[in-house]
Amino acid sequence: MDATILPEVTAAGVIIKAILILAVISAIAGFGTYIERKVLAFMQRRLGPQHVGPYGLLQLAADGIKLFTKEDIIPQHANKIIFMIAPIITAATAFIALAAVPVFPDFTIPFVDVYVPSIASDVNVGILFVLGMMAAGLYGPLLAGMAQSNKWGIIGSARTAVQFLSYEVVTGLSLLAPIMMVGSLSFVDFNNYQSDGTWLVVYQPVAFILFLIAGYAETNRTPFDLLEHEAEIVSGYVTEYSGMRWGMFFIGEYANMITIGVIASVVFLGGYNDFWIFPGWLMILGKIAFSFFFMLWVRAAWPHVRPDQLMWLCWKVLMPLAVINVVITGIVMMIG
């Protein structure tokens, strides 16, 4: 197959890829809960899930069966329609966001000789699309909290709004500097920009750190898990949810964690370019796995911040830093 031929985008191919992404990511998201429990347990010197299957590996199946067979309770005074669609918003947007994210280098299926560009759709505004989708995903918690006529839920959705307003700015501004350097919004271009082996994090360390911080807020992981912090607001926006609707929030959250991991790897950490003797697909899997692990690590080690501290941090520290970073990048690019 000649490499110069543009990857053909057929409808069948896109559908197959969409189904694959859906299946693989929801499986990984489920598996992520297992990993999270194991890693957190190890960091607290516990064993974690242990009894279902070898090393508790089938805990995932047990949890899945439990979630599927649990009664789907809808509170009496809830706004039923919104209550019912809110988890779907979270899960769906999380998966839609993954459509424009490349995970592997393009490859050719052996024997059949079909060339596969391994991105469901290379939208030319990829980054904006993904960020927009992840931001839209925040409507899930927002609506869920307000629809369930529960005080904890209301507080949860209020905090969603706070968080949403605060970090969204930082996410955009922190990614602006790399976008300026690459001059494109497509993830594939980002990847190709770093194909000479220099990762963008070398040029943009500040943007990388800002993006990580904002990404943790975006996926509401510790230290920014204000939305459903058990110690303060019972479960926040998921207080009234049970069964599969609750599970959908979680699948969405874990899918978002993976998305953030992919964006961080592709934009800042060299993407799926080959590195030394390691092939690209292994590199990016390793990077995504590490960024996932880092989220769990941070959760085990760091306390979480108050909502006012989050706003303070985002508006008074991170945003000025991001703006300064953008300005300096611009000046350097103009001179250089």
């Binding site: 890693v39 190890f42 010197r45 516990r46 690590w297 085990a300 080690a301």
Partner: peptide, 30 residues
């Protein structure tokens, strides 16, 4: 912000994990 205290926290968590997994200091009694 510039003090490496956050990283000390990270290291402590990792150290406990290493202790638990490889040095046989797991607390759990089954």
């Amino acid at each position: 912000s510039l003090k490496p205290e956050l990283f000390v926290g990270l290291w402590v968590a990792l150290r406990e994990m290493i202790n638990a997994l490889f040095r046989g200091q797991m607390h759990t009694t089954q």
